[in-house]
Design a protein around this nucleic acid. Structure first.
Lengths: 349, 349
DNA sequence: ATGAAAGCGCTAACAA
DNA sequence: TTGTTAGCGCTTTCAT
């Protein structure tokens, strides 16, 4: 492999421009106290030599590393990749995160960490020690894992928590899950449905509760009973089947599912029961991953703005000073996309 | 942000173990000339203190960076992410690349670079200078871009080229495109088809030609005419529509498309012509992204082993010494997955 | 087999 | 406003 040294360093630039290292450094970091003409000269030299700072050296100098770490749950992510069910959660995170980082001269590194494992602290510490990122983006279920947030807090590393509102430091971002669930439910109410079932997500996700609350609130407000219309799921297709079975038996004419897979399962289960969607049963899903658009019929869904929320998280981490932490949560609202899996309630129901 | 220094460094370990910095360094890097008892002692200290080397510092010292860079085409990748058509090429690369890197104590960083831009050299140089990766994984169309390969060659950075067999240094890996195209075509021949159309990919992808060759060879070998049965596409849905139109007019009873989007387009176009798949037209696609399994009917497809080929690329970069370069290309074969978009040729044709 | 010294490219603290 | 000095944590020399 041999030792590969930086071909053009800050030294070369300094020599070329006839200034000190420090002046070059100041220009690179856009620090004050540099005369415009100096800055001009240095920038010309930088361009002429094609100089790019080494982030390793920058980090060693004690400043920022210009690295953001996006942390996802290892088991879930790998399982999703292997299943190839068309979820593009990760892609959308990369889209929002990488582009935003690039705009600010940062880079986003994507990493997987176990949530459940007991050596999680060691694993995370290792990643932090090795990479020394300036900030960390957390997604559920990491977002509200105290082992993780405490560690980050102690290490003094900025972090953003997507999908969590609990205490625990860092920036909090949501996609307005409760409002989204209201919108989905209202849409069905507007179509004349009175028995609207809800398939909840796993209870260890905060957003599962928010979504249930949105549904419950709308049912109450519309003067509808929610009795027997809440079924538990865990985001898996299998759990969606079971939940749908239960809801169909209860006589639901519409179902809101907390993710796409459970929504697809609900439709499949409905078919098994001889029902057709949306004629006999309306279904709304959460997430709006690509498969629901290619499904027949295309699903009415809550589209989660994953790219946008990740972009906001990155921006907060990069641009917000340490003293401005613990601000109010940022909400990037999801929106309802009406397609063909929802229709007016059958007149005989 | 404040300066955040490494909490436990090689110095602490050295002090704890009562040895010199150098001995610790030797243990970390598994170098020879360390007595087992010394090694033992040092490793205990490392474990006790929870020490993890800083890759920034390692890199500064002149050693490896333990970073691999996966380079993809910016425009195409971002366009794919935005379209949300369910392609999981990137996810599969991450799956194969990240896991393999992790096994070897490496990290994979995913980056986007413009192919067409004239400032490509600057862009790539910047990424290399900033990150100083030990190796780079190239995908089409970067794989055979001389601007990129020459730059890497000159910089002395190991690289792997997926989907290219041209000269240009580095490791070459393919997914056996020609054989895959043969398999797809043979499958159709076996079903009795004689007029088998082929929708080619863009000509600036080497693999487009390989796939055409596989089809052509099979047609010849089976004693079938290929006249008028080759249509050009560019991987886009729109181009698939046009190509399918042409092939259907020519009287093709089966079509092999060079990617999923064009295959889906072919099916849509067939429907527009009042034909049903697979009754009136059989279709085989390349890639096997998730959407084709959720499509109705599910598509018979060539499944590209992206995760595996990326894993192999990473492994080659990490484990192969510099003197073992320019070896024979590595082929990770794709395989045909038969689903419901192919059937026997109609008896009246 | 082990240790001491020098330096990687950069930034922070200080001085001028 | 600018330059000088001293590290950052690690790996390479080169001694011992």
């Amino acid at each position: 492999m041999g030792r590969r040294r930086q071909s053009v360093t800050i030294k070369h630039v300094a020599a070329h421009a006839g200034v000190s290292l420090q002046t070059v450094s100041r220009v690179i970091n856009k620090e004050p106290n540099v005369r415009p003409e100096m800055m001009q000269r240095v920038q010309e030299s930088i361009a002429a030599l094609g100089y790019v700072p080494s982030i390793a050296a920058q980090r060693m100098g004690g400043s920022r590393s210009y690295l953001l770490l996006a942390l996802n749950d290892r088991d879930r992510t790998i399982a999703d990749w292997r299943k190839r069910e068309g979820s593009d959660w990760i892609d959308q995170m990369l889209l929002g995160g990488m582009l935003t980082c690039a705009q600010h001269g940062y880079r986003m590194i994507f990493e997987l960490v176990d949530t459940h494992s007991d050596h999680i602290e060691r694993e995370l510490s290792a990643a932090l020690a090795a990479l020394q990122p300036d900030g960390v983006i957390l997604t559920p279920p990491h977002s509200h894992n105290p082992m993780i947030t405490d560690l980050l807090e102690k290490a003094g590393i900025a972090f953003a928590r997507i999908g969590s509102l609990r205490d625990g430091g860092g920036f909090r971002l949501t996609m307005g899950d409760e409002v989204a669930a209201r919108d989905a439910t209202m849409h069905l109410v507007g179509l004349g449905h009175r028995r609207i079932g809800f398939i909840a997500g796993p209870t260890d996700y905060e957003l599962s509760h928010w979504r249930v609350e949105g549904w419950r609130w709308t049912m109450e407000t519309a003067g509808l009973s929610a009795d027997g219309l809440l079924a538990n799921g865990d985001f898996s297709y299998a759990s969606g089947i079971a939940a749908a079975k239960q809801l169909i038996e209860t006589g639901a004419t519409a179902i809101v599912a907390s993710n796409d897979q459970m929504a697809l399962a609900a439709i499949a289960e409905a078919r098994d029961c001889g029902m057709e969607v949306p004629r006999d049963l309306s279904v709304v899903s959460f997430d709006d991953t690509p498969v629901v658009r290619f499904h027949h019929p295309p699903l009415t869904a809550i589209a989660q703005p994953i790219a946008e929320v990740t972009a906001r998280a990155a921006e907060l981490l990069i641009t917000t000073a340490a003293d401005a932490r613990d601000r109010a949560p940022v909400e990037v609202p999801a929106r309802l996309v009406v397609r063909e899996s929802t229709a007016a309630v059958p007149s005989d129901r």
